[in-house]
């Protein structure tokens, strides 16, 4: 098994070419940083203060984009897992690792900002309604996914078992997305795609869109960095194995 993996169609991976960051990466990181600062300006200064919740509503511009972009990144994890099982592509597995980690980071932002917002508005930090519970469960499940990856050997086994687990845990994500639509929750109803009574003032919607753009750019940057690292790690792994076989 090890032999087939090291001696693939392209032959043993070589250490000749040192890994190099592409020239556009600094530019892209710069654009991401600029977008994040612009989002901060929009959320703090440009967007009008909301009527009932006052200044606290401004947390919205980081809380919601972090959650929805996080869910999007978990969807990438699902797609990468399916792709891995269909094609046994190491690149897909690298994307699965990257997306699980980035998603956990984004959902962590959402889960910490939530109670900070809830305390002054609801008077409590946390409540076990469907939306809050499921979001926490999803975060725990993707941490479990990362633990599973650490507990399995770095062979063909690890990506396969991780992909199997990824398919089980993604089930909760669409249910969580629909939770505030299906059930009565303490968590407010959706303002986006939420039916005829939902909606935002144009200036608020613009600030929210900027927030989304910033988080999408951030997620893309982090995904790209982690994805390359995982591929490099795999390359080193193959090298070590080839060496062990040679000796």
């Amino acid at each position: 098994m090890k032999q087939t993996e090291t001696a693939g169609p392209t032959g043993p991976a070589s250490t000749a070419a040192p890994p190099q960051a592409p020239p556009w990466l600094p530019w892209w990181a710069g654009v991401t940083a600029a977008l994040m600062l612009y989002a901060l300006y929009q959320a703090w200064i440009a967007a009008p203060t909301e009527a009932t919740m006052g200044i606290y509503q401004r947390i919205f511009y980081v809380h919601v984009p972090a959650a929805l972009v996080g869910f999007g990144v978990f969807f990438i994890n699902l797609m990468a897992s399916v792709w891995y099982l269909a094609r046994r592509s190491r690149a897909a597995d690298a994307m699965a690792v990257a997306s699980a980690e980035v998603g956990v980071a984004l959902l962590a932002i959402n889960l910490i900002t939530g109670p900070i917002w809830a305390k002054p508005i609801w008077g409590i930090w946390w409540t076990w309604d469907a939306r809050l519970t499921l979001t926490l469960v999803i975060w725990i499940m993707y941490v479990s996914y990362l633990v599973l990856r650490q507990f399995t050997p770095h062979s063909e086994l690890q990506p396969r078992l991780a992909a199997a687990y990824a398919m089980f845990i993604f089930v909760a994500v669409p249910v969580d997305y629909m939770a505030i639509r299906w059930w009565r929750t303490q968590h407010p109803q959706p303002v986006l795609f939420g039916g005829p009574h939902a909606g935002l003032a144009p200036a608020m919607l613009y600030a929210l869109c900027v927030g989304f753009a910033a988080y999408i750019a951030l997620a893309a940057t982090l995904l790209r960095l982690r994805y390359r690292q995982e591929q490099l790690r795999h390359k080193i792994e193959l090298q070590r194995r080839a060496r062990a076989l040679a000796e």
């Binding site: 901060l40 959320a43 703090w44 947390i59 980071a105 932002i109 900070i116 951030l218 960095l225």
Partner: peptide, 28 residues
Amino acid sequence: SVVAAFSVAWIVTTIYVFTLGARQRELE
């Protein structure tokens, strides 16, 4: 609260970027 919330977002991001940096050095 608002300052705390935005700080958390930036801190989590920064921590993740630092772990990425540490892993990159290890791999290299």
